[in-house]
Simulated scan of single mutants.
Amino acid sequence: MNVLLSAAFVLCWSSGFIGAKLGAGSASAVTILMWRFVPLAVALSLLAAVRTSWRGLALRDAARQAAIGVLSQTGYLLTVYYAIQLGVSSGTTALIDGVQPLVAGALAGPLLHQYVSRRQWLGLCIGLSGVVVVTRADAAAGDGVVWWAYAMPFLGMLSLVAATFLEGRSRTRVAPTVALTTHCLTSAGVFTALAMSTGDARPPAEITFWASIAWLILLSTFGGYGLYWIILRRSGVTKVNTLMFLMAPVTAVWGALMFGEPFGPQTVLGLVAGLAAVAVVHRGEPSSPRDRDRGQQATRVEESRAA
């Protein structure tokens, strides 16, 4: 089950970069994002009205989920979409976003008090090396793209990392449907306000625009975003973010096939490094949470003795 969830998560999350590229030719980033989240907010609000999972949700927990939505959706998506609008390829955007696992892994210990093993650090470093190689090659081939455009996905990555740790520090478990609804309602409000203030609220009539909206709602939001939080709660910060190393090569292959974006030896090297990173981190992974806890406690004892 974990393997199937991981594979589905990688494909669905990668689809977000492709969907953004698909819609970039017909509308601005805020227009795409507004019309991606307004239908979602309406549908999820109607669903929430007939469900009982909202009962007992404290105001503080609702505010925390709204803040998580601002970071994980508004901040993350706006920077990524804007980078693609500026001309950064979908593959390059995903590659820059691939720095996230190292940042999350480095902060997991001091912020969440989660144990990060030596094997996990080795996998993170292997994945990072592949990301660096491919990112440098793709950035060098980005003719006509302003240099600061490559900083946009990096800022988005930091926003998603912040959302991940804000969720991880929460002591209250909020139902996934409640969290997703709160996030989408918050994002719909922010993106609508931005689109209306810039005069970009009116959607274009092109079929490609509405195809990208349907793509992003079904694959990216329900698929990628939903699976992100599910796997995060099942496996922890370090392991779910290690899967992010696969986003870059998968998106690069997808972009090459769908949009004719460059795909060279460096991308292949990044793919190999990403696969190796995931294999190293997940090798010998315990099958149950109790086994994982026992394994982590045993490793702590061994390392304390060695010290």
Rank of each mutant, 00 (worst) to 15 (best):
Q114L: 13
A195I: 00
A27V: 00
S28I: 02
F245Q: 13
G260Y: 05
F222T: 00
L44V: 00
M196N: 06
S170H: 07
R118E: 04
D97K: 08
A149K: 12
R305M: 14
L46G: 12
V70E: 14
A298K: 08
L166C: 12
P203G: 01
V240N: 08
L122Y: 09
R36G: 08
A43S: 12
D97C: 14
R169Q: 08
L44R: 02
V250F: 15
S212F: 02
T92K: 07
S90E: 01
I207T: 07
P265E: 15
T242H: 08
W210Y: 11
T238L: 13
M157H: 11
A62H: 10
A7F: 05
Q100N: 03
S129E: 02
A211K: 05
E261P: 12
L243D: 08
L160T: 07
V268P: 07
A48G: 11
T181P: 15
V116P: 04
S187L: 05
S15W: 14
P39V: 12
T31V: 01
T172D: 13
T299K: 10
D138K: 15
I96K: 05
L33M: 14
L122W: 10
M1R: 10
A201H: 09
S15G: 02
T52M: 12
P110F: 14
A151F: 09
A162S: 11
M152N: 09
C125F: 13
S235F: 12
S287N: 10
S14R: 11
T221Y: 03
L128P: 00
A163S: 13
I84H: 11
S15F: 10
G98K: 09
L128K: 08
L246R: 11
P265R: 09
A27P: 14
T52K: 14
G75P: 04
S212K: 01
V146S: 10
A214N: 08
G168S: 08
T242M: 04
S89W: 07
T181H: 05
V133R: 04
S220I: 03
V237L: 11
S45L: 09
F222P: 01
T172H: 13
T164H: 02
W215M: 03
A83I: 01
A43G: 04
S212C: 03
T52I: 14
V30I: 02
P176N: 04
T164Y: 03
G130N: 02
P203L: 10
F9R: 01
E206D: 07
K239A: 13
L22Q: 07
P110W: 14
G87S: 12
S72L: 15
R233T: 10
F191E: 06
R136F: 14
V161G: 01
L232T: 00
V88M: 11
L269V: 15
F165D: 05
P249Y: 01
F191K: 03
G144D: 01
P286Q: 03
D200K: 01
M247A: 06
L57N: 06
T208Y: 10
K239W: 04
V237A: 13
G98P: 03
P39N: 09
D293V: 05
L44F: 07
P39Q: 10
F154G: 05
E167P: 09
A298E: 13
F165E: 07
A141Y: 05
R305D: 15
V268I: 13
A140I: 06
P286K: 02
A62D: 11
L102M: 15
A58I: 01
L194S: 06
G156W: 04
A62P: 09
A49Y: 12
E206C: 05
